[in-house]
């Protein structure tokens, strides 16, 4: 798993509510047998015209936001479909963080497993960051420090945030989550020994006695 500790980067303000994962990457890009090439589908419905040419008005097609590694959004970012292609597409297009007041829960979990940190900050903070970014024509860098759980605005103001400790540690270390779980083999075995006596039907679909 890819790790992430600290970045300082260009941030693109897209302060809209309910940006769903169908917008982040339309479903037609998911019909594939490889995870490669998903970055091309990022925000495809808005990034390209119907003729397939880049839409010059879309923020990620404009300098300097075409080099953004941080996305600023309003509440409920990543709601809807569970498609992991959403954070994969963000990452493949260069993003390392999304800052928003709240996130769809499945998307939130998926981010950590794809080298992208979802940062929850109140809307007032997100608006301030966006205003500072726009005041510098996008040149002012925004800092995201996952270890210190802090966001730094272009003017140096600092906003602290909270993230789930287990997911944070995993992203900081780039740890293999399955390995961590498999190390608990004995504990898992003990649980199943007791649980399968209590709920045998749960362990044997269609159990008949």
């Amino acid at each position: 798993m890819e790790k992430l500790t600290k970045i300082s980067a260009i941030a693109a303000p897209m302060l809209r509510i309910n940006i769903d994962t169908d917008q982040i990457i339309p479903a037609r890009f998911l019909v594939r047998v490889t995870n490669d090439g998903l970055g091309e589908g990022l925000f495809a419905g808005q990034r390209y015209g119907r003729d397939g040419k880049p839409n010059p008005d879309f923020i990620l097609n404009r300098a300097p936001y075409d080099r953004a590694e941080i996305l600023l959004a309003d509440r409920n970012f990543g709601c809807g479909s569970s498609r992991e292609a959403a954070p994969m597409a963000l990452r493949q297009r260069g993003f390392r963080a999304v800052i928003a007041p709240s996130f769809g829960g499945i998307f939130f979990n998926n981010c950590f497993r794809n080298g992208v940190v979802p940062v929850e900050l109140p809307i007032e903070a997100v608006r301030q960051i966006a205003a500072e970014v726009e005041a510098t024509q996008g040149q002012g860098k925004v800092g995201v420090d996952l270890e210190g759980e802090a966001v730094t605005t272009p003017s140096g103001a600092v906003f602290k945030f909270r993230s789930p400790p287990l997911l944070r540690e995993m992203l900081l270390a780039g740890a293999d989550e399955v390995d961590l779980t498999l190390r608990r083999g004995e504990q898992i075995g003990d649980f199943r020994g007791k649980d399968s006596a209590k709920r045998p039907w749960a362990y044997r679909p269609g159990l008949a006695n």
Binding site: S82, R83, E84, I106, N109, N110, R113, N114, E177, V178, T181, L182, I188
Partner: peptide
């Protein structure tokens, strides 16, 4: 609903 990496975790561990 889960992501596909969570799905891989469930396949490998059933947890």
């Amino acid at each position: 609903g889960i992501g596909s990496t969570e799905g891989e975790h469930v396949l490998a561990t059933q947890t």
